[in-house]
């Protein structure tokens, strides 16, 4: 049987530590630069087949739709 998560935040990637509270439902990945942020988001989205959304405050969400 196919079991998976849908419509949930799979991961949070941020370079703005203050904007994200750790210990929520989803794992949080920290990045130092924009390039790293972009790269991490791309890697994780390809691994999880989730979609990357930009919150424009230095935080990306990966959500499976």
């Amino acid at each position: 049987m196919d079991i998976g998560l849908k419509e949930t935040i799979i991961a949070v990637i941020t370079k703005n530590k203050a904007s994200v509270s750790p210990g929520g439902g989803a794992p949080v990945f920290y990045a130092d630069t924009d390039e790293e942020l972009e790269k991490l988001a791309m890697y994780i989205s390809r691994i999880t087949t989730g979609m990357v959304h930009d919150l424009e405050n230095g935080t990306y969400l990966i959500i499976k739709h």
Binding site: E38, A41, M42, S45, M51, V52, H53, D54, E56, Y60, L61
Partner: peptide, 20 residues
């Protein structure tokens, strides 16, 4: 508009990755 993709004035979705 930023990460938001529009078709004319209809909002379609939020695309995070710059390459995409």
């Amino acid at each position: 508009k930023g990460p938001l993709l529009y078709v004319e004035d209809i909002l379609i979705m939020n695309v995070g990755l710059k390459n995409s």
